[in-house]
Amino acid sequence: MTYDTALDALADRTRRRVFESLRSRPMTVGELANLQPVSRPAVSQHLKVLETAGLVSVEAQGNRRLYSIRREGLAELRAYLDSFWSDVLVPSPPRSRSAKPKLTRDLCLNRS
């Protein structure tokens, strides 16, 4: 999963509603379409984007396809957001470029 794919996927309001509907239980496209003011093909399309982003998984049960939230996908997204500033506010690793700005070294960031 790439984080911007996941964030992009969830940036769309309708898609987010589809995703949030799955919090209560796994559902079929038909069930989801009944809960949303959008057509079944549109719901399918949104699910496809969510699946590509690693946020939703699909499982065949008999002749039904059940969609559910993929916990790992959301956990990865949260981990990315949680670690964002701790990754940013630390000394940069030495850069391969030789023209390393002197001030980078002088800034000498240390976690308190």
């Binding site: 690793p93 800034l107 960031l109 240390n110």
Partner: peptide, 28 residues
């Protein structure tokens, strides 16, 4: 998120806002 930097306030501020590209981990 809090960190301490080894320079005075004015330098820290200036580097933060004006030279963000120098310290931001652009690869990460």
């Amino acid at each position: 998120s809090r960190i301490e930097v080894a320079c005075d306030q004015q330098t820290a501020f200036t580097i933060f806002v004006e030279q963000m590209g120098a310290w931001w981990p652009l690869a990460k």
